[in-house]
C-alpha cells in the first residue's frame, strides 16, 4: 500500500538524486571545457604605463588609526586583455581584478592587494582595452608604509557559474612597478 506521504517521499528522493547527478555532470563538464579552452594559460594580456601615487589619509576607512595619517597608494595604468575564452554556456559572470603582490618589510610577510576590478556578464564585453585608467581602490598596507618596495601587477579572474564550482586563475603576464613615496612638505 502506498499512501500520500510515501508517494511524496519517493518523488522527492528521485528528484533530489536526478538533480544531484545532473549538477555534478554539469560542474565537471564545464571545468573540463575551460581547461581545454586554455583559460589557465592566457598570455595576451598587457599591463603597461603604470604610474604610482602616494598620499596621506586621515580617516579610519582609509586605514588611519588614532588620528595618525596613513599612507595610501593609488595607480594609473594601461591594460589590454582578451578574456573571451572564459565565457561558455555555464558562465554567469566573470570577476576580473588587477592585483599587486609585494613582500613586506618584515621577513616572511607577503601581500596581495586589489587596485581595480570589474564584473563582466557578457562575452562581447570580455575584451578589455583601458588607457590611463585609474585604480578603483586606494590601498594601504598592513605595515606602516609602502616606501621603497616593488610590486608585481597581475590580471586575475574568477568565474561564477550558473551552477557548479567556482574557478579562479590569473593571466600569465606580470608587470613590475615601484610604490611612490609621500612628498614631504619642506
Amino acid at each position: 500500500m502506498f499512501n500520500l506521504a510515501n508517494r511524496v517521499q519517493v518523488l522527492l528522493n528521485q528528484t533530489l538524486t536526478a538533480v544531484s547527478v545532473l549538477t555534478a555532470a554539469i560542474a565537471l563538464i564545464s571545468v573540463v571545457q575551460l581547461y581545454f579552452a586554455g583559460v589557465w594559460s592566457i598570455d595576451t594580456t598587457s599591463i603597461s604605463n603604470v604610474k604610482a601615487i602616494a598620499l596621506l589619509k586621515n580617516l579610519r576607512s582609509f586605514g588611519a588609526l588614532h588620528g595618525k595619517p596613513k599612507e595610501n597608494s593609488k595607480i594609473a595604468f594601461d591594460l589590454s586583455a582578451d578574456l573571451t575564452p572564459l565565457f561558455h554556456w555555464n558562465t554567469k559572470q566573470i570577476f576580473v581584478y588587477l592585483t599587486a603582490e609585494y613582500e613586506g618589510k618584515l621577513a616572511g610577510l607577503s601581500s596581495r592587494v586589489t587596485y581595480w576590478d570589474k564584473i563582466i556578464t557578457r562575452r562581447e564585453d570580455a575584451t578589455l582595452s583601458l588607457k590611463n585608467a585609474r585604480a578603483k581602490y586606494l590601498v594601504w598596507d598592513v605595515e606602516k608604509s609602502f616606501r621603497g618596495r616593488n610590486a608585481t601587477l597581475r590580471l586575475e579572474w574568477s568565474i561564477q557559474p550558473y551552477v557548479g564550482a567556482f574557478v579562479l586563475g590569473e593571466t600569465l603576464v606580470g608587470e613590475d612597478f615601484a610604490f611612490a613615496s609621500v612628498k614631504r612638505k619642506s
Binding site: G104, G108, L109, S110, S111, R112, V113, T114, D141, V142
Partner: peptide, 9 residues
C-alpha cells in the same frame, strides 16, 4: 569577496 590578503608563516 577577498579584496586584500597579508600573510606570514
Amino acid at each position: 569577496r577577498v579584496l586584500r590578503e597579508h600573510h606570514s608563516t
